[in-house]
């Protein structure tokens, strides 16, 4: 029987949660015994090879591309997990949510004190993902099965949750592993 597969993605995140996953140190050897990595920045695989058992999502949805990737993950993953405060709450990128989008863009590309932009244009290339009106936590876009908050969630939190799911056990994390910072 082939090993279960795991896929990961970073949407509007800082890759800190992926770094925390690497922080499981030598336990990563145990993890590769248990799973194969499918689409993930860790192995640089760009496309799903098929159905995967567990999807880990870092970051919330800030652009249309984030939403497409998230929906793609939902289609391919049996269990989808929001990892980190950006995925579960919007996090730092969601600080722009209290300011209208046009004001954010004007501050970044026109009015900011350190901006040098003689044309005064706001980037509008089809190659640049389109920003959403707000940054959305993942569960406001697709159904999410588990939440692992933290900035980032500790390596222990990630490892214990993933191993529990792979062993078909309940994800019952102790008090010290559910933290928002």
């Amino acid at each position: 029987m082939s090993k279960p597969k795991i896929a990961t993605a970073s949407l509007a995140g800082c890759f800190g949660c992926h770094m925390s996953l690497l922080d499981i140190d030598e336990r990563i050897l145990d993890l590769v015994e248990l799973v194969d990595f499918d689409k993930s920045p860790i192995n640089d695989l760009k496309k799903f090879t098929g159905k995967v058992q567990i999807g880990l999502i870092e970051g919330g949805c800030s652009t249309d591309e984030n939403v497409q990737v998230l929906r793609d993950f939902r289609r391919h993953c049996e269990i989808l997990i929001s990892v980190g405060d950006c995925a579960t709450q919007g996090g730092i990128p969601a600080m722009r949510n209290t300011v209208p989008l046009l004001e954010c863009l004007e501050e970044a590309y026109c009015n900011g004190p350190t901006v040098y932009n003689p044309s005064g244009a706001i980037p509008n290339d089809p190659e640049v993902p389109l920003l959403l009106d707000k940054v959305y936590p993942c569960h406001e876009v697709v159904k999410i099965d588990y939440f692992l908050p933290g900035c980032p969630p500790s390596a222990d939190t990630l490892f214990q949750a993933i191993v529990a799911l792979l062993k078909n056990e309940p994800v019952d994390l102790p008090y010290e592993l559910i933290k928002y910072d």
Partner: peptide
């Protein structure tokens, strides 16, 4: 919480921890 000076000493956060709330069910 990730950049709040009160994090770790905050009673609202502490209650969420005590109740094991991983994410709120309501829209932000």
């Amino acid at each position: 919480c990730m950049f709040c000076e009160k994090s770790g000493n905050c009673e609202l956060q502490a209650l969420a921890y005590r109740f094991g709330i991983a994410a709120p069910r309501y829209p932000y």
